[in-house]
Amino acid sequence: MIRVVLPYHLRNLARVDGEVLLEMESPPTLRSVLDTIEAKYPVLRGTIRDHVTLRRRPFVRFFACKEDLSLEPPETELPEAVATGAEPFLIVGAMAGG
């Protein structure tokens, strides 16, 4: 079970409280986690990454186990602690408000 923490506005949009739990195949990658989130919550399509290019939106960042994974390629496998559910995968709205 993968644990995902969404930013406040996306939790509201998806109408979820707290962490999102995802059942998915191992090993989880950046791409497969996002695919699974969007399949479970279609309203989030286009809010984390572009509809067409699937590129991360500029002011959205990805973190796990205190590492910034935002610039890693989509096929990057997530840390073992995330795969086992010991640590959450964090989707964060960047501090870019000025």
Partner: peptide, 23 residues
């Protein structure tokens, strides 16, 4: 509600969620 934002499966099995898709 976000029209098209629900879990409606498209023919390829993926959900649509295209109400915010302006291409």
């Amino acid at each position: 509600n976000t029209p098209g934002g629900g879990p409606t499966a498209s023919p390829d099995g993926m959900p649509k969620g295209e109400s915010n898709k302006f291409v």
